[in-house]
Design a protein around this nucleic acid. Structure first.
Length: 560
RNA sequence: UGGGGCGUGGUGUAACGGCAACACACCGGCCUUUGGAGCCGUGGUUCUUGGUUCGAAUCCAGGCGCCCCAGCCA
């Protein structure tokens, strides 16, 4: 939206455009503020994309700033993982910086507030601080140390920094208003003492670390952020954000704007819950394809384009809402429908024998790689007397509206021939072991010269040429639409992973590499898993195709 | 009985005083060598009550409902 005449599409862009127009800022700079204490999930993707795209749309830039103000929680491991995931999404930043880069200057600024009489060292215990904060309806009680002389505050602060006092013994607090209706304004803590562990970047240089509220706005000001975009729960931190900047007399202070975070049904998004899923072994790890993390989505076969599209379609607003995961699924289908080449793969094989087809003959038939993209070309498919078809594509006694193969019915084998079912083989227990058909040689390629039609086309794989594979069918992790409560483990979907072995793939799939994506015709979109190996292929189902037949079945079951 | 935010089909967003629009989902139909894709159509007293106005989703007042805040987390 570099076009000056185009209209902002949301309230954030409206505000940015207005700030530019009014001359409040000449250029735009936003920042990603992840805390390096976990893997990114799709909720982060929304925040990241807003920061990135808003800056880009208005000719500005983005900085990646790791919010490493709490050594007790942060690890270098995540610094790299976060960048990897953000890059995968296509996000570009000008520089990578850390809150810890600003520790020195931030400390100087804190002393300025102390000198102004706007901050003080409090010797109350954490329990006392908490008790004296008051409640939502009752004002807090001022600390007995609140009016300590400036010199004493400065001395104590310096000694806190130098490590003279134990953790929890003292804090630096802003002196605002203990009776404020907004709890954040009741003399918020600016610095607390933390000796252990060593900080992942500054080591043991600092014994005090800034709280989020104290670090955030000042860091923004220090590297020239103009718009500090964040999620809605920080809305009542904004008065504090502005209070610090105002007391420090920062010219052209950055502006904080909040938007509602992404919630998705049928999943959980909080770091705590995700960690429980991993630690309790409900999933195989942070990249288990059922997780909402970006690495999991990537392994599952989601494309960055699909995620971008999803975030775009969800939009930006301030209302607390939950988006439908069906929209995310629609976005991948949309993207993969255009891009993924089609292949034939039989997930639950049933042997089909064409009795009147010559023994030993192998024909090569031509198949279209992607009907949505002519440039994708065609490929050859070996066809022979013995094939595998999907077990679901045959019914000895067809239910109502079943168009597929059943005794006496004629169907098309995709790109091959019309076949009519003539008989069924069964084992001693009565299970169907093979179906026999007769083919019509005149229908080669799939069209009948006499113009007769079939109601159904089914996919197949030549038995002699098939590549065997494991296929992992993924479904929603939870059966409950809103599992976001402490008892969420109860709502885990027992069928969220179904592992199929002995699946039969067309031979061209033998060459597929991890990450390659295909549509298995009539089944869904699949991606070669990272654990896949030559000779032992593993495919993940990204998402099933829309299945009208499943709906018909559901309805007939429901009405029964 | 504190402060802040938010209420538009099932879901998420648009409409910035002038015919409530789009996407997903759903339901019907058309089309189809994927029961895919594509195409067409159905579905709303804009939380509520009152007010201002020729005219209100939009402005004003009251009510109701939902979300966030009492970490030395972010």
């Amino acid at each position: 939206m570099t076009d000056e005449t185009s209209k902002p599409t949301d309230f954030i862009r409206e505000a940015v455009a207005e700030d530019l127009r009014a001359g409040r800022f000449n250029t735009i700079r936003t920042r990603l503020p992840p805390e390096p204490n976990g893997y990114l999930h799709i909720g982060h993707a929304k925040a990241f994309l807003i920061d990135y795209l808003v800056a880009r749309d208005y000719g500005g830039v983005l900085d990646l700033r790791f919010d490493d103000t709490n050594p007790a929680k942060e690890e270098t491991e995540f610094v790299e993982a976060i960048q990897e995931d953000a890059r995968w999404l296509g996000i570009e930043w000008e520089k990578v910086i850390y809150s810890s880069d600003f520790f020195e200057l931030l400390y100087e600024w804190a002393k300025k507030l102390v000198e102004k009489g706007k901050a003080y060292v409090d010797d109350q215990s954490p329990e006392e601080v908490s008790r004296n904060r008051g409640t939502l309806t009752e004002p807090g009680v001022e600390s007995p140390y609140r009016d300590r002389p400036v010199e004493e505050n400065l001395d104590l602060l310096e000694r806190m920094k130098n490590g003279e006092f134990p953790d929890g013994s003292r804090v630096l607090r802003a002196k605002i208003d203990m009776a404020h209706g907004n709890m954040n304004m009741r003399d918020p803590v600016m610095y607390r003492i933390i000796h252990e562990p060593a900080h992942h970047r500054t080591g043991r240089k600092w014994c005090i670390y800034p709280m989020y509220d104290w670090a955030q706005g000042q860091n923004d000001a220090m590297h020239g952020v103009t718009h500090s975009l964040c999620s809605i729960e920080y809305e009542d931190h904004r008065p504090l954000y502005e209070w610090f900047l105002n007391e420090l007399e920062i010219p052209n202070p950055p502006r904080q704007i909040e938007f509602s975070r992404l919630n998705l049904n049928y999943t959980v998004m909080s770091k705590r819950y995700l960690r429980r899923l991993v630690e309790e072994g409900h999933v195989s790890g942070w990249d288990d394809p059922r997780m909402p993390t970006l690495r999991a989505l990537r392994r599952r076969g989601y494309t960055p384009e699909a995620i971008l599209d999803f975030i775009d379609r969800v939009g930006i607003a301030k209302s607390p809402t939950t988006s439908d995961i069906a929209l995310l699924e629609a976005c991948v289908r949309d993207d993969l429908n255009r891009r993924a080449e089609r292949r034939m793969a039989v997930l639950k094989p049933l042997k089909l024998i064409i009795d009147n087809y010559p023994d030993g003959l192998v024909e090569e038939l031509e198949a279209v790689n992607n009907p949505e993209d002519e440039a994708a070309g065609t490929r050859g498919l070996p066809f022979a007397k013995e094939l595998f078809i999907e077990a679901d594509d045959f019914a000895e006694t067809p239910p109502p509206k079943y168009y597929r193969l059943y005794p006496g019915n004629e169907v098309r084998l995709r790109y091959a021939y019309f076949v009519t079912c003539t008989s069924v083989d069964k084992d001693a227990d009565g299970n169907i072991t093979a179906v026999h058909c007769a083919y019509d040689p005149a229908t080669r390629g799939g069209d009948a010269p006499d113009g007769r039609k079939v109601k159904s086309t089914i996919h197949w794989v030549s038995a002699a040429h098939a590549v065997q594979s494991e296929v992992r069918l993924y479904d929603r992790l939870f059966t409950e639409e809103s599992p976001d409560k402490d008892s969420f483990i109860e709502y885990l979907n027992p069928d969220s992973l179904q592992v199929l072995t002995g699946c039969m793939l067309e031979p061209s799939l033998a060459e597929a590499r991890p990450g390659d994506k295909f549509q298995f015709e009539r089944t869904g979109y699949f991606c070669v898993d990272s654990e896949s190996a030559p000779g032992k292929p593993v495919f993940n189902r990204t998402v099933a195709l829309r299945d009208t037949w499943a709906k018909i079945q559901q309805k007939s079951h429901a009405s029964r």
